[in-house]
Design a protein around this nucleic acid. Structure first.
Lengths: 367, 367
DNA sequence: TCAAAGACGGCAAACGCTTTCCGCAAAGGT
DNA sequence: ACCTTTGCGGAAAGCGTTTGCCGTCTTTGA
């Protein structure tokens, strides 16, 4: 049996209300509706009023797809992160999304899970969805692809580790300075044997942080034996196993600086399990200042990187790339400052009395 | 190799390659290209081959917007969560995204932050973007709006606390059973004075969990004095302050069940700060089994709800709603099972020896 | 009073794609 | 050999917007 084919008004279409319905309701042409919606000044105020009323009445929502099709801009931004399950990123995502939405953009989020193939297909998906720009908050995107996009003048923002290309916006997190803040804090407390747990060294940014650590230590005239440099994976598991390696050393370092907070949290756990006391036996310093850090036991001393600043710079950078008609004036860098947040996971090394330390300079010698 | 210099189709648009370019390259009509792309069987295999080769050569990506415009489906799904910064949700988001992408869908994520106004505008944004369906993984969406959408047969999936409407897909997490598993575990260990830290009671699902707790306790003939029911906020801060209230009681309960893991983690912290030992002084049980739970100190006993199952059911439910042409056969429920995961944050109440537990009431010795 | 100028709103052409319809050619039946 | 059936490709009609181009109606200066 064939269903109601007799009723021509009942179509198979979803009951979506289009600009035509508004036009009919307001007794104007669809062009006028469009102009009213877009606040074009040439439309008579009284007419515009009527249009808005009609819009309200029929519950009209402009179809973004159609709009995108004709305007060439989708008003969507791509956001690529490493791992959405790493607590640092949701905070970033949140900020990014708030800012983007405030500017009328929607956000497509993707996580690469450090997998190049995944990254590639993610990029592809984003392009296919016609995002107006992409913020790459992770590392290891194919240079080829990036180069092609840059040639097209496709808006891109990288954090920290961008391919060496001009015409790219880069958010420079000052790892050098941030790590130095952490190291100097520890050194000022009297630590000399400071270990470092890095992120995955296959990637650029973790390597940069490790370099920054070595440089900071060198500046202070402190040596770093190779066994004090262990590789983690920027998550808790990595922090745990890395810390276990340090614990297994004949002599425990008196402090450990970590490449990010999750690593530090992992380190705290490993230490707790082996009944080492933090900070009495060993000081731990993180990097990022994720929300969780302040709730650790003990609350984690860490280097703050404001993900609000980061998100703001990313959105602003993308907007600049999108909304200017003229070609960009070359690579633009945004400086993201860092700030040491001292909590309770760091203190004087065991045996060094507070009284002796206060008054001495960071560049102290002797033990 | 473009002989057409005076071709009026050549505009100053961004260098996006369209179906026409492919058609030209392959020497066929655009219709053929479209059919080849969509794997329509009537296309000659050899021709299709040529088309695919051309697609590869010119680097063609079908414009999703245009496709959505004509097909009426955007191949995008909305995912509404409470707080993306709450570690439970990124795990869910991850799973959901993986599944959706595997089916050719993109995901638009939004967090409500428990703010009805935000939720409303989020919903609006999603509809305007023409998502094909929305999974609502939070609570407190306006009934009116939902009703309107349901009337339109707009695919919606709710978790647990859906408005009382037919024709809705609901993922029923078995809180009653989950909470009971937790409570019975504690009771079996010999606990009788079990407190409960709920989520924000303004919302439906937290209330449901609280009811489940009361019911489970009643089943066991255990009384719950009102001061043992405290309200949290489903995050760490809420867990901390709630636990502090319990600690301030003249007599500490021997165990506390929490409405979710973040609350439990907060509780652990509050207890640690006040030098109470977990689980010796008090057992703590969570709910959700987020990744973090196993890394707590001590590792958290909790009730697992598989967010993979949850995500899978959500995606499947939406797909069913989207891809079937016939009207739905009424409300459909998906049952999400729970499972107790015993770790080290729960044990016998102090003073109750393991051997004595079965049959005797726990002996309390003061403070 | 008339014409020129100016406002303003409508028509219609894209935007990139899918899909229906139609014509042409080849295949199959008698 | 003719007529019917079938298959496949091309042309074209939209999908819901925006926007350039005109036509019309009002305003204003001489």
């Amino acid at each position: 049996m064939s269903p109601s084919k007799d009723n021509p008004t009942e179509r198979r279409r979803p009951a979506t209300v289009s600009i035509r319905d508004v036009a009919q309701r307001a007794g104007v042409s669809i062009a006028t509706v469009s102009r009213a919606v877009n606040h074009i000044s040439t439309v008579n105020a009284e007419l515009a009023q009527r249009v808005w009323k009609a819009i309200e009445e029929v519950g009209y929502l402009p179809n973004t797809q159609a709009r995108a099709l004709v305007s060439g801009r989708s008003k969507m931004l791509g956001l690529i992160v490493s791992e959405i399950t790493n607590p640092f990123f949701p905070e970033l995502v949140q900020e990014f999304e708030n800012l983007a939405v405030a500017q009328g953009y929607e956000v497509l989020i993707g996580s690469t899970n450090y997998d190049p193939a995944r990254t590639e297909s993610l990029m592809r998906r984003l392009l296919q969805r016609n995002v107006d720009g992409v913020a790459v908050m992770t590392f290891g995107v194919e240079e080829d692809l990036v180069k092609k996009l840059v040639e097209r003048e496709f808006p891109l923002v990288f954090v920290d580790a961008a391919p060496d290309l001009s015409n790219i916006h880069v958010l420079k997190v000052d790892y050098a300075e941030g790590i130095r803040q952490g190291v100097q804090h520890l050194a000022a407390l009297g630590h000399r044997r400071i270990a470092f747990i890095s992120g995955p060294l296959t990637q650029r940014s973790p390597r940069a942080r490790r370099e920054a650590f070595l440089k900071s230590m060198a500046e202070l005239g402190l040596k770093v034996p190779p066994e004090h440099l262990v590789e983690g994976s920027h998550n808790m598991e990595g922090g745990i196993t890395a810390m276990e390696r340090l614990i297994a050393l004949p002599e425990l370092p008196t402090a450990v600086m970590c490449s990010n907070d999750m690593t530090a949290i992992g380190a705290l756990h490993a230490l707790y399990r082996t009944t080492h006391k933090v900070p009495e036996d060993i000081s731990v310093v993180g990097f990022d200042d994720i929300h969780l850090a302040q709730f650790m036991l003990p609350p984690l001393t860490t280097v703050q990187m404001s993900c609000r600043d980061l998100a703001a710079a990313a959105v602003e950078g993308l907007r600049a790339g999108i909304e200017q008609d003229h070609p960009r004036h070359g690579r633009r860098e945004w400086h993201i400052p860092t700030r040491l947040v001292v909590r309770q996971s760091s203190t004087f090394p065991r045996g060094s009395l507070p009284a002796l330390v206060s008054g001495t300079q960071p560049k102290r010698s002797g033990s």
